[in-house]
Nucleic acid binder design. Structure first.
Length: 278
DNA sequence: ATGGTTGGTTACCAA
């Protein structure tokens, strides 16, 4: 089972790039962030025509917006409001057998009876990393705390759960081009990293990409638009993540960060990140 | 310390 996360930065503008991803990589499940459109304008038919007939959307005008596109049917879908706002930053789906038998995949029992997927678009947090003068930063920290409590309240570390999305935090030294120069830059500050670490502790989340990529190796999923040539300076950050619970670790068979998508004509500033679960 | 670019909406906001 291939699962992708991608901040698409306007799903209407870049639906053709999603179709390219569908045709070339054939993921089973694609989770998008920053779709930036109301549900009535979501290009549902374009994706249905590619075989992604199970679509769960939470969109709004202009900002945010998340969705899950799937070849596999859902048994439950939820839209979660976070930090008292209906701002379309968290959707989830369940894949499970109502009879209690195993979820089948290609007609074959998977050995799993239940798998939940949570797609998150964590607030970017503004420019100033101080909640007393920047309420966006406070919103970001509160959002992460709420996710920590949500996971702790709804799951145990033995459940099969995936959470992924644009977390807007690059937590590790080699998730950024220069950890030293980004200490006070929102996305890499110690306070954000500590909050994200607490969220990870909730049900012992495991970083699926760092499962494959050594700690000392640079790994990025985002490059700013504010550079003439993103390849020259290569000042990237790993803002997009896929986490799995411990029972799924032994099923992880591969990962990919599709960096070539940053070089397309009119690209998103984020690239797709994919894992494969046996 | 500053400004650099993009998307959505449509006169700036968010990233």
């Amino acid at each position: 089972m291939k699962i992708v996360t991608w901040n698409i930065n306007s799903v209407r503008l870049r639906a053709p790039m999603v179709v390219k991803l569908m045709r070339e990589e054939a993921p089973d499940i694609i989770c998008l962030q920053e779709t930036k459109t109301m549900d009535e304008f979501f290009p549902r038919d374009v994706f249905e025509a590619e075989g992604y007939t199970h679509i769960h959307i939470a969109g709004m005008k202009s900002y945010n917006g998340v969705c899950i596109l799937s070849k596999i049917p859902f048994t439950q879908t939820d839209i979660h409001s976070r930090v008292g706002k209906e701002d379309c930053r968290h959707v989830s789906v369940s894949l499970r057998s109502p009879s209690g038998s195993q979820v089948t995949y290609g007609g074959i029992p998977s050995g799993i009876q239940k798998l939940d997927i949570h797609n998150l678009y964590i607030p970017a947090g503004g420019d100033e990393p101080d909640r007393d003068i920047n309420e966006k930063f406070g919103h970001k920290l509160d959002f992460i705390n709420e996710m920590r409590d949500f996971f702790a309240a709804n799951y145990t570390a033995n459940d099969n759960v995936v959470t992924l999305g644009d977390f807007n935090i690059a937590p590790r030294e080699h998730d950024v081009w220069s950890s030293k120069q980004l200490q006070k830059v929102v996305s890499h500050t110690p306070i954000e990293i500590e909050h994200l670490s607490n969220m990870a502790d909730s049900i012992d989340w495991q970083d699926a990409v760092r499962h494959f990529v050594p700690d000392e190796e640079k790994c990025y999923s985002w490059w700013s638009y504010r550079n003439r040539d993103y390849t020259k300076s290569n000042r990237g950050r790993r803002l997009d993540h896929i986490w799995v619970t411990k029972p799924l670790i032994s099923r992880l068979t591969s990962y990919r960060v599709l960096t070539e998508y940053r070089a397309l004509e009119k690209p998103s500033d984020h690239v797709p990140v994919m894992i494969e679960l046996a």
